[in-house]
């Protein structure tokens, strides 16, 4: 029987790289405080080296993840939803800890679960919606299909702890991309817990990597890395937007800015968000004997 005044065990919030939970290599942290100005947790202040390591992991995992069958990717997304569903209370509590009301928190987690299921269902369908057979005039069979862009860096919206992050990660990975996501700076805890959910959901190591840290410090790293194929981010702040796109130009990175989307609403989910991180590949072959 537990003692009524049992000392609780505080959780260490770490980052998630290549299927492991290291502390930031920099050893830096930032204290997260609640409204009462009490420290809730010491959060890893991820560094550019952490990001670099995460990109290496994401690149290594990308080809294999893209080759996984659409059915398998769908099942893994569904598995994430299942794991999250089982931990709803944990996430509700954690969001409350970061200042959400219970009602808000519960709604956010529930929508996050449903969103994962929404995208799980798209895994083996978006290709059919967006592909085409092209009736060329010559004696060739010609078709266009979607392929993942590759490695996507994600700056999750700052104003939500879970739903924003999930709404960015799910459409990227369901399409065979791997990603490195930067959690909300002000609400980082749920992101780390979500990494734990991913870890328990058969998501191969490196497919999703999640860092916590300062947006001002890391956004430009996310935008400039030459082995990242696309950056998806909220596009907030004119100055930062200029900087992101300028840096992205170095390797003609796809810049996907998603300002002013209410991730709690239906506009936060769409196959067009999957398409954002897809390339169209057209193949020609002669028809003869």
């Amino acid at each position: 029987m537990a003692a009524a005044n049992r000392l609780s065990v505080a959780k260490t919030y770490k980052i998630y790289i290549d299927g492991k939970f290291p502390r930031t290599e920099s050893g830096r942290y930032f204290p997260l405080k609640n409204k009462q100005d009490a420290v809730i947790a010491n959060v890893c202040r991820g560094s550019r080296k952490d990001f670099r390591n995460a990109v290496v992991a994401a690149r290594k995992a990308q080809a294999g993840w893209a080759r996984a069958s659409a059915y398998l990717r769908g099942q893994i997304l569904y598995r994430i939803a299942e794991m999250l569903e089982g931990r709803i209370e944990q996430f509700v509590a954690e969001l409350q800890l970061q200042g959400r009301t219970e009602r808000q928190a519960r709604k956010e987690v529930e929508i996050a679960v449903d969103r994962l299921i929404y995208y799980a269902g798209w895994a083996d369908k978006y290709q059919q919606v967006f592909s085409s057979v092209n009736p060329v005039s010559s004696a060739h069979f010609n078709f266009s299909v979607l392929e993942p862009t590759g490695v996507v860096s994600i700056i999750a919206p700052d104003d939500s702890g879970l739903i924003g992050l999930v709404s960015y990660i799910a459409p990227a990975i369901v399409g065979g991309n791997t990603c490195v996501a930067l959690a909300s700076e002000s609400l980082p805890l749920s992101a780390v817990s979500f990494a734990e959910v991913l870890h328990a959901s058969d998501v191969p190591a490196g497919v999703v990597n999640i860092l916590t840290g300062f947006r001002d410090e890391l956004t430009e790293q996310f935008a400039s890395h030459m082995d990242v194929n696309a950056i998806a981010w909220p596009g907030d702040g004119r100055k930062m937007a200029r900087s992101v796109q300028t840096l992205a130009a170095e390797n003609i990175k796809r810049v996907i800015a998603r300002p002013k989307i209410d991730w709690m609403s239906d506009e936060g989910e769409s196959p067009y968000l999957i398409r954002d991180t897809q390339e169209v590949k057209t193949t020609w072959h002669p028809i003869g004997s």
Partner: peptide, 20 residues
């Protein structure tokens, strides 16, 4: 973005073209 198998440099208005 465009892959030609057993042919090359073919173009058609119906055929999407562009790069990775």
């Amino acid at each position: 973005g465009v892959v030609w198998a057993n042919t090359f440099n073919k173009f058609d208005p119906t055929s999407p073209f562009g790069g990775y």
